[in-house]
Computed example of a mutant assay.
Amino acid sequence: MTPTTIVAAEAPETCCTPAESAVSAQEVVRMAAVFKAMGDPTRVRLLSLIAAGEQGEACVCDLTDPVGLSQSTVSHHMRILTEAGLVERAQRGKWAYYSVVRPALDDAAAALRAF
Score class of each variant (00 low, 15 high):
V101P: 00
I80E: 15
L47K: 03
Y97H: 13
R45V: 07
C61L: 11
E13H: 05
C16Y: 07
H77E: 12
Q55D: 13
S21R: 13
A114I: 03
P103N: 11
V29C: 00
L81S: 03
P66A: 12
I6D: 04
D107I: 08
E10Y: 03
R30I: 09
F115A: 07
L86T: 12
I50T: 03
A52E: 15
A84K: 02
L63R: 10
D62E: 14
G93A: 14
T14N: 04
E54A: 14
A58L: 06
A108L: 10
V7F: 05
D107A: 15
A33P: 02
M78Q: 06
F115L: 12
P12S: 05
S99W: 05
P103S: 12
R30L: 07
M31Y: 05
V34D: 00
A19D: 04
C16P: 00
P41K: 06
E83T: 08
A25N: 00
A52D: 14
V44N: 01
I50A: 01
A33H: 14
A96L: 11
D62Q: 14
R30V: 13
P3V: 03
S21E: 12
Y98R: 04
Y98N: 02
A52R: 15
W95R: 12
S70K: 14
R113Y: 07
M1R: 05
C16R: 10
Q55Y: 10
E83I: 04
T2R: 09
C61K: 11
M31K: 03
A111D: 08
C59Y: 01
P18E: 09
C59M: 08
P41D: 05
A52P: 02
A32W: 02
P41Q: 07
T5A: 11
A58E: 08
S70Y: 09
T4D: 05
C15V: 06
A37F: 04
V44W: 00
E20D: 03
R30G: 00
R43N: 10
E88N: 11
R45E: 13
R45D: 05
G68F: 13
M31N: 07
T5Q: 12
L86V: 05
L47D: 03
T4M: 11
